[in-house]
Design a binder for these strands. Structure first.
Length: 243
DNA sequence: GCGACAG
DNA sequence: ATCTTGTCGC
């Protein structure tokens, strides 16, 4: 599939100021409220997991489309790595590979699930927001670490499975202080023991509310910390990346 | 100058 | 993200 808004393509040749400027424009275009044509939790909904792997000088993007737990389509594409990882500018490093993989996709997913942040971003324009706005499709970001923002409650102590803690905007985020830009979602936890699992950081990318984004991520989990679409894309990316 | 940072 | 075996705990 092709982007609906190619003018928002993450060009790695831009300088830092231009990248940040583009992100501000993308954030203004993004919608952080539900705007879907289907029920995202319905078993018929097509959810696409997107993840990248790096090896040598190439970035590999893998997309796995699922429908009620079954794999509907699986594609990948490789592209030369253009720039290094810079916190806040991830979409400019991984976007090219993602667009190449999307070009291979014949399915038309209802929701896109990206590895990384959406609205939980300094300028509210993380990877999930950037690609989601380009496609003008419902998108969310699932990250393993918190980029910015302030948890409403301490996350120092292990949380029970199913717990959800709002992440609010603070001085380092463009949104007004206190705005809920995402959630820490404890998708899985050990019943007892010494070890514990960290929560996921889920945020809306485009056309989804913070609550619905968390609902989708949680709904897609099947016994593991990561939601299935992300897990499958993760495995496929790693699989085809170093070969 | 200090601090803090997805993958 | 990536470099990497065994090891601890359920």
């Amino acid at each position: 599939m092709q982007p609906v808004r190619p003018e928002f393509a993450p060009d790695p040749a831009l300088d830092r100021a231009e990248m940040e400027s583009l992100q501000r424009e993308i954030a203004e275009t993004a919608t952080f409220a539900d705007d879907l044509s289907v029920d995202p939790l319905d078993p018929h909904t097509l959810v696409a997991g997107v993840d990248q792997g790096f090896s040598d000088g190439t970035a590999t993007s893998a997309i796995v489309v699922t429908r009620g737990g079954n794999v509907v389509e699986r594609v990948h594409a490789r592209v030369d790595t253009e720039i290094p990882y810079i916190p806040g500018l991830l979409s400019f490093r991984e976007g090219g590979a993602i667009l190449a993989a999307l070009d291979e996709l014949s399915t038309d997913p209802d929701v896109f699930m990206f590895d990384g942040s959406g609205r939980i971003h300094f300028r509210e324009a993380g990877l999930a927001t950037h690609i989601g706005v380009m496609l003008d499709a419902p998108a969310l970001g699932v990250a393993k670490n918190l980029l910015c923002g302030q948890p409403r409650e301490s996350l120092d102590e292990p949380l029970p499975e199913g717990t959800r803690v709002p992440i609010e905007a603070d001085g380092e985020v463009t949104a007004p202080d206190g705005t809920v830009i995402g959630h820490a979602v404890q998708s899985r936890q050990y019943d007892s023991g010494n070890r514990y699992i960290n929560p996921l950081y889920v945020s809306p990318g485009h056309r989804l509310s913070a609550e619905t984004a968390a609902d989708i991520a949680e709904h897609c989990c099947d016994g593991y910390k990561l939601p299935e679409p992300t897990r499958l894309a993760d495995a496929h990316a790693a699989d085809v990346s170093r070969k």
